[in-house]
Structure formats: C-alpha cells, structure tokens
C-alpha cells in the first residue's frame, strides 16, 4: 500500500522515551508520518489520558445552557445551515429523491435567496453520479458513504472498490466506517491500515472517518479512535452513521473536539469534526456550535472544519430563520419534506 512506508525513526524515538505509554512522549513525526507497529500503536492509544466521563458530561451539559438570542441566533442559524451535510441514506432512495434533496441543498428556502447553501449532500455511492449532475455549478459538495456502510463488515477489497467507485463517480468527500469489531478486539493496526488504505483510494477526495460511537461503549474508546484515525490520515472524524442509537451526543463530540485541538497543537495538522445523527432542532445545532467554539476554538467554526450530518434539522433551522425574519411562528407545512 502506497503510503505505508515503514520507518524506524518514530518508533525508535518512542521506545527511547522514558514516558512509554504517555501520549506526551510521542514525537510529532510519529503522529503524522510513519506507519506504526501494532505494539507501538497499542501502547500509544492506551497511554492516552483517560476521559473523565462525569466531567465531560457535565461540561457538555453546562455549555448547552448558553442562551443564544436575536442577532447572534440569526448568525448561528445561517452558520449551521452552511455546515449541514444534508443526508439521505435509505434503502428506498431513488434518483428522483436525490435530485430533490440536491435542489433543496443548493437553495434551502426557495422564497429567500439570502439563505446560504448547505455544505454537502451525502448519499450512497451508487447515487453519487445523480447528485454530482444535479449539483453542477452550485458549489455544494457531494459526500458519499463507502466501505460497506453502515456495518463495515465486508472484505477489504470490496470496501476499497466501494470507495474508488464513489470517487470516480465524482464524490468530493468519502465517509468511511471503521471496523468496530477489530477496534473493540484491540486490533488497532488493522483499523489503522484500513483507514490509510481508504485514504489512499480517496485520492483528492476528503476522507471522513465514522467511529459509530454508540458501539464504542466508552469515552476512552472515542478518544483512542480519534487519535487512531487522525494518525492514519483522516481529514474529518465523524461520530456516527445515524443507524445506531445513541448517535451523536454532546459529550462524545466534546471528546472528539478536544482530540482534534490537541492533535493540531502537536502536529500542526487540522482535522475536522462531524457529529451525525440525532440532531433535529435548531437548539441542538446551536449547542454544537457553542461546543465547537468553546472546545476547539473559532478556527473550527467553518464548513471546512465542522459539519452537521443531518436531514430533519434543516427544516427546523429554516423555520426558526423565518420566525426571526417575519416575527410569526412558522410551521412545517411550509417547507419541503426532503
């Protein structure tokens, strides 16, 4: 595999360091360049400081109590709309439904040209072509899930073929799922290699790595998965597929935001975050924006570095936007469903 050249520099540095098992002891070079060995990766991930679960829950809950009103709210709504990855991932998706979704993504509220377009439309690989055609000239990206989404249970060749097909069809972003079975079994190197291989298959397309945090059980695992994916070359780390409950939660996103912040401090490379699933209301979306600002910082407050994977939240954002514009409460009957 092309970018998995083994060099001993990082590894050697790691062993000679007295603080084995402490993330602080790993050099920048190790974190970005070299392919690690299984033992080194394991030692590194288990050496990450544990997450204080109560503290993370408490911190996320406290940030969620911020009240964002009037002009700040209007700004937050527009920002949230521009960060939405408008998603349809159903077995019943048709080209017609995808085209309708694309039209909505490019012009969320047909009666108001002031509404920003969404960041991307997220579809299954076989519908990427339809979305690319429908979105030509709009500036909206096309994201495609790949690697046997949502379970990730397929041979590696199939996953890579899935990825290449999506990229060839014109997807600008690939959302891959990690092999949770391997991760939970402690086989971190397999997960690392799969991410690296998929990244190589992506070419110029951005790679988002989905952890499915609802299946990872602990915040410690979320932190480990974040560092693992970032080391393997992920451009974005994403919470969930949206097919498992619980999907994105504030504390999980908090842990991931801390990871991308620390990773940039250590390596200078910035990685994006995408919570997905379970974000339904404007209030939810704004809570995530507050969390980003307070945890990772304002550098991440842009569609290039933070995305909201959702479908129903867009209508609520539009309803709230129209409430602010007209002064009367709006209703769901006045917006398209898909």
């Amino acid at each position: 595999m092309p970018n998995q050249v083994v060099t001993q520099t990082g590894f050697g540095c790691f062993v000679s360091e007295p603080r084995v098992g402490d993330a602080g002891g790993v050099s920048t070079e190790t974190l970005t360049g070299a392919r690690p060995s299984g033992a080194e990766l394991r030692a590194f991930l288990h050496g990450l400081p544990g997450v204080d679960q109560v503290g993370a829950d408490e911190r996320a809950a406290r940030l969620a109590t911020r009240s964002i009103k009037t002009s700040a709210k209007a700004q937050a709504i527009d920002m949230a709309i521009s960060m939405v990855d408008l998603t349809t991932l159903e077995g019943a998706d048709t080209p017609g439904k995808v085209r309708a979704l694309c039209a909505k993504g490019a012009r969320p509220d047909p009666s108001d040209p002031g509404v920003p377009r969404v960041a991307a439309i997220c579809v299954y690989p076989d519908l990427v072509g339809v979305a690319v055609e429908a979105l030509q000239g709009t500036g909206v990206g096309v994201a495609s899930v790949a690697t046997a989404f949502p379970s990730g249970r397929a041979p590696m060749e199939a996953k890579l073929a899935d990825t290449r097909a999506a990229v060839e069809a014109g997807a600008t972003e690939i959302d891959m799922v990690i092999d949770r079975g391997a991760f939970l079994a402690g086989d971190y190197l397999t997960v690392y290699e799969q991410i690296a291989a998929t990244k190589a298959a992506c070419g110029a397309a951005h790679l988002k790595v989905i952890f499915e945090t609802g299946e990872l059980a602990t915040y410690d695992n979320v932190r480990r998965a974040s560092w693992l994916a970032m080391r393997a070359g992920a451009d974005f780390i994403k919470t969930s597929t949206g097919k498992i409950s619980p999907a994105a939660t504030l504390p999980v996103t908090l842990v991931m935001l801390e990871a991308v912040r620390d990773f940039r401090d250590r390596t200078g490379r910035q990685v994006g975050v995408k919570p997905a699933g379970g974000i339904r209301t404007t209030k939810d979306a704004i809570k995530y924006l507050v969390l980003v600002n307070e945890t990772a910082g304002p550098d991440w407050l842009s569609p290039a570095w933070f995305r909201l994977g959702a479908s129903s939240v867009l209508n609520d954002l539009l309803m709230q936007r129209r409430k602010l514009a007209t002064g009367v409460y709006s209703g769901p009957d006045h917006f398209t469903k898909d």
Binding site: G327, V328, Y329, G331, P332, D333, H334
Partner: peptide
C-alpha cells in the same frame, strides 16, 4: 396574537 399568526395553526 401569537396564536392567530402561528403558521402551524
């Protein structure tokens, strides 16, 4: 007035 103007009523 809020009830009268609400678009979902």
């Amino acid at each position: 007035p809020w009830l009268a103007s609400h678009m979902d009523v």
